[in-house]
């Protein structure tokens, strides 16, 4: 069902002189976990707030089911804001049922769903406690319940993993995976890149209000310039200098990291290396998401 895509189409936003988003464009497909990464201030939160209509875009459009998102469709979105927010003096169950009702559910369905998610996230003993009496980790669980309690058809979560212990991270990951498997597009931001790499179907890297790379982790990794690691203990310092399409990026005692221009023949390099003496390691290096991210960010800084 490609029609239930969440599309962010050339969305721009500026705060006075500061450009927060510059034609931000990407899509989250149904049943897909989309990880949103970028340094602080890159525009992730601004994008999410615009998707939820909490903030108005200067230009551009957010579409869902092929139609521009309006107030009525947003009630079917689930949202976890960056700044966590719940009524501190309201009891967990009462609060969740209230939020479900506000999203248009009947009182019975709201009550049922609140109970369901409270059970699912292990808060059953806490359901009659006020939110302010809970630990931060449990408050975070309630916050996730608040995003899920009205059976949303789109999920937008700003930093859902921050401040969670490893067990809670697993619970949260599983819940997001399950929701995606139900066909819900899930968009979330995180700074935990290993987690994003492991969990997400696709990843988008944002820099200065623009989407600079988006795709599956495999696509992103293969898109990066190919790297070779060559260990040749007897090779002279300048053995690789004459090779066409090769740049030395790193060198430590007999170990070279080479960046290859597209189309460069690796075998030719191996021959050149063997000509200097024994070769103890010759491997292709795949960058991690973290390295990709750092590359993207430093490229931006260099400009």
């Amino acid at each position: 069902m490609p029609s239930t895509c969440l599309e962010i189409d050339r969305v721009s936003k500026r705060y006075g002189e500061v450009v927060a988003l510059r034609e931000m464009t990407f899509e989250v497909r149904p049943g897909e976990l989309f990880g949103f990464v970028g340094s602080n201030g890159a525009g992730k939160t601004t994008t999410m707030r615009i998707v939820l209509g909490v903030l108005a875009a200067d230009s551009g459009e957010v579409r869902w089911n092929g139609a521009p998102v309006d107030f009525a469709t947003r009630t079917r979105f689930g949202y976890m804001p960056e700044e966590r927010g719940l009524y501190p003096k309201m009891k967990v169950l009462h609060q969740l049922a209230y939020l479900a009702e506000l999203h248009g559910m009947s009182i019975q369905a709201a009550q049922r769903n609140a109970e369901f998610w409270i059970g699912k996230l292990g808060l059953r003993d806490r359901r009659q406690d006020t939110v302010q009496s809970l630990s931060l980790g449990n408050q975070q669980r309630v916050q996730l319940c608040a995003a899920l309690v009205h059976e949303p058809e789109v999920l937008v979560l700003d930093e859902p993993f921050s401040g969670l212990d490893p067990v809670a991270v697993d619970v949260m990951s599983q819940v997001l995976r399950d929701k995606a498997d139900e066909g819900v597009p899930v968009l979330f931001s995180s700074h935990q890149l290993d987690l994003v790499q492991r969990l997400c179907d696709r990843v988008g890297i944002v820099r200065s209000g623009q989407m600079v790379a988006a795709g599956t982790v495999a696509e992103l990794r293969s898109g990066a310039a190919a790297r070779l690691i060559v260990e040749a203990p007897d090779a002279p310092a300048d053995w690789a200098r004459g090779l066409a399409g090769v740049t030395v990026t790193e060198r430590t005692a007999g170990r070279w990291t080479l960046e290859l221009a597209p189309g460069t023949d690796e075998q030719r390099i191996l021959h050149a290396a063997l000509a200097t003496g024994p070769v103890t390691e010759f491997s292709r290096h795949k960058p991690t998401l973290g390295e990709l991210f750092r590359n993207v960010v430093t490229e931006g800084d260099a400009r």
Binding site: G85, Y87, P88, A146
Partner: peptide, 17 residues
């Protein structure tokens, strides 16, 4: 002020005007 200080206002305004 309670809704603002507890930040729930953002969650609420994502679904009500």
């Amino acid at each position: 002020v309670e809704e603002k200080s507890s930040r729930i206002v953002e969650l609420l305004l994502a679904t009500v005007r």
